[in-house]
Nucleic acid binder design. Structure first.
Lengths: 340, 340
DNA sequence: GTGAAAGCGCTAACAT
DNA sequence: ATGTTAGCGCTTTCAC
């Protein structure tokens, strides 16, 4: 009745109250079925009266595992990660693991600190959804615990990865545009962003395969709104006939592209079609309604957890690299070219 | 050299290697200055050679504190929270606290589970940025540790809160619109969203103060894109002269409003001005460029941490409710009314 | 300045 | 089915 006492009840208090040993309390708390109904009820009652709550810290110490997975995100603001986390938490929770998320705002120093902290916390596995880590940091950490990279891969020996199949994604985009009748298709590159090179190569290969090599037009950009704006400006400044369709490296950059086009009075999709990549929640906004490529982000999170669990079960030594398949989401920014 | 051995080095291994007692190692690892330079170097060298990393679990057990703050978020997808977290992590980190984030996707059951887990983990303080928790859950948890609510308040005795001053925010919006010359100003309500009632009341009060009571027009909505769409549809279906400006309860709903207006060929801001609330990153996108009210989200996160630290220092018993001041961000969706 | 010893709250043999 | 015992890896008196 007096919750003001600072010391929380321990397993010993419960044992005393129930008149049993603390091992018995432990068994009951962990749901072991080898306890008689009578004693179990006794223990449960005592625990409830005392407001007992098991101490995960003590348990982790003796069990030498925390049932915690660490997740390091470069950037919480990118809606991409929020959905990966959804999948991670769901899959982890189902196996009795909790998730502890660290965000590092694109700062390498903060990344290293976050990594060290998680290792001191003795998380049982690590998910890195952050493109900046140096290979040596990854290699060092991989010696201490199971690790998986999301949306990036590396060839560090025991480090798994789950990435989306960017070449396929790019091919889906190109197929869609070509089927609509586009030939003069440009690409705004994603710079150093994860998967950007694959998307660009997919674009170039598709153009070649369709006999459109002469129309290949790649301008530099990045995975940011600004990157998309500059890309479109470069395209418009390039002279020659305007492309009838633009494949932009990701959604955020596609938004930048849309902004510039709107400012210039160039209508989408009547005058030019736009396709993004990622299908972030932005793309689905009615006011934006962007045709884009969906990466199954929750699936990617779930896969990452599955890889961790495999390793924890000791079922595997070699690195595994899971490739998830993207799909095209057709919305309102693509249409047949307006042959003027 | 053989990192394959499963057992990580402990403080005892380091002590043995350095030829000192484990207490000494402990002193060195914690940066105590009472150690001779000679021994310190010895210990540090031994630790480095072994790849020793302090075990936070063991430390937490004996110190009876984890230096961890828990954060429960209803929804990671809402960009509002991402920035609150930034402030939280910054302020907490500066005081040696780490943050562990749990997301609960708007599910009350998941909320309770997340809460229980964090309590078992023995976090030293809890930040709730989640509007759904029942008062009794909050009250129960508040007996076990310091707690602060973000973007919501409650009158549970020892529970602090940090919220934005919604009445002031609403007043800023109304002042802006009135100064532009608007009189026929409508409001799309935020339903049960946190702060929605205050925003609506602020709207109504401002209208009355300006002698615009006859033009008060509130339609139901919610903090979602759909809520904004329905709101505008209701407004347009209402008959009578169309409002020249609409104050929408939050940014996401404002986006819904913009979408419907665009579909109907109603130009913003020429035909109607739109104002949102929150200044989420969406609003700043060039393609959207929404006039809105900024809540200083990182500040709110920092304040939340400050409140927790105050309580941990035992400096306060009574609840404190911090109100942060919003500011108006004028962008491209507002202009003087087009008197036709 | 350094070491020895006790104990944080729990689990996991091992007994019984 | 239940109790006893010995730690988990660290911090913290308290001696020296």
């Amino acid at each position: 009745m007096t919750p003001t006492t600072n010391a929380r009840p321990t397993i010993i208090d419960v044992a005393a109250r129930a008149g049993v040993s603390k091992s018995l309390v432990s068994l009951v708390m962990r749901g072991e079925r080898t306890v008689s109904d009578e004693k179990r009820a006794l223990v449960l009652a005592a625990a409830a009266e005392l407001g007992y709550r098991p101490n995960a810290v003590a348990r982790s110490l003796v069990r030498r595992r925390t049932n915690l997975f660490g997740v390091i995100l470069s950037d919480l603001h990118n809606p991409f990660f929020a959905e990966v986390i959804d999948g991670v938490q769901e899959a982890a929770g189902a196996e009795g693991y909790r998730t502890i998320i660290s965000t590092v705002n694109l700062s390498p120093a903060a990344e290293q600190r976050a990594l060290d902290t998680l290792l001191e916390l003795r998380v049982d596995g690590l998910i890195l959804a952050s493109p900046m880590f140096g290979v040596q940091s990854i290699a060092a950490a991989s010696r201490e615990l199971p690790m998986v990279l999301v949306a990036r891969r590396s060839d560090v020996p025991r480090v798994d990865s789950v990435t989306n199949d960017d070449p396929t994604g790019a091919r889906l985009v190109m197929e869609h545009l070509a089927n609509l009748g586009h030939r003069r298709i440009a690409h705004i590159d994603g710079g150093r962003g994860a998967g950007a090179a694959e998307r660009r190569e997919g674009y170039e290969r598709s153009m070649a395969e369709r006999g459109l090599a002469e129309f290949v037009h790649v301008v530099p950009g990045s995975y940011t709104e600004e990157g998309g704006r500059h890309g479109v400006e470069a395209l418009l400044a390039a002279g020659g006939p305007r492309p009838t369709a633009i494949f932009v490296a990701n959604d955020l950059a596609a938004l930048g592209a849309l902004a510039v086009l709107a400012e210039r009075g160039i209508r989408v999709p009547q005058d030019v079609s736009i396709v993004g990549y990622d299908n972030t929640s932005l793309a689905a906004l009615r006011h934006i309604n962007l045709t884009t490529v969906d990466q199954p982000r929750p699936d990617m999170g779930r896969e990452a957890v599955a890889l961790l669990l495999e390793r924890l079960a000791g079922r595997r030594e070699a690195a595994r690299h899971v490739l998830v398949t993207p799909t095209l989401v057709v919305r309102g920014t693509t249409a047949p070219p307006n042959e003027g």
